[in-house]
Amino acid sequence: MERDEHLRQELDDFKKEKERIRNIVGEIGGKNNKQHKIVSFVFIILIGILLVLGVVLGKITIFLTLEIVVVLGIFKIIWMFYESQRASHFQFWILNSLEFRLNEMDRKVKRIEKMLKEKE
């Protein structure tokens, strides 16, 4: 009974830690965050203003308007790649740290097992 309670406590701790890591990764760029929404909104507003100036009001030629809109779209795609790369790098760093710690713990467990076998 006591062992089951201990395992449940460990499982709860693991779930809390997993959720905390998920939130950290989300803040870095794994999910839509506030900064991403603001940048997307700015790009949409800029493209909308350019289309209104170029197509509706005729202040800018349609060809120039389309060229600027395409360039803004390319900048947005480049920014998205950058954000994705940053999130991937952070996730890799976390996984690498976890692997290092697991290997360290494995070595300690093997050393303890060896010591126990020697004592027997």
Rank of each mutant, 00 (worst) to 15 (best):
S88M: 04
W93L: 13
I78C: 00
M115W: 15
I112Y: 13
N96Y: 08
E120K: 11
S97Q: 09
E120M: 01
D106V: 15
I94S: 05
G73W: 05
S97K: 08
E118T: 03
K76G: 02
F100E: 08
L102H: 10
E120A: 03
F75L: 06
Y82H: 01
E99C: 04
Q85T: 04
I78Y: 01
A87T: 00
R107A: 15
N96V: 01
L98A: 05
E118R: 02
I77R: 07
R101C: 11
M105S: 15
L116T: 08
K76Q: 09
R86H: 09
L72N: 05
N103Q: 11
M115R: 12
R111D: 12
L116Y: 03
A87K: 00
L116N: 12
R86K: 08
E113D: 15
S84R: 11
H89A: 11
L102P: 07
E99H: 15
K117T: 06
F92H: 13
E113S: 13
Q91I: 03
S97Y: 12
R86Q: 05
K110W: 08
S97C: 10
W93A: 08
F90N: 02
I78V: 07
F92V: 03
I74N: 07
E113N: 10
K108I: 09
F75I: 06
M105E: 14
K110C: 14
D106Y: 15
L72V: 04
I74W: 11
I112M: 13
K110V: 15
I77S: 10
E120T: 03
F81V: 12
L98H: 09
L72Y: 01
I94D: 00
E104F: 07
R107L: 10
K117H: 05
H89M: 11
K117C: 02
N103R: 08
R107M: 13
K119Q: 04
W79S: 00
R101Q: 14
E99G: 11
I77L: 11
F100N: 12
L98W: 12
F100R: 07
K108H: 09
H89V: 09
E120R: 07
E120V: 03
I78A: 00
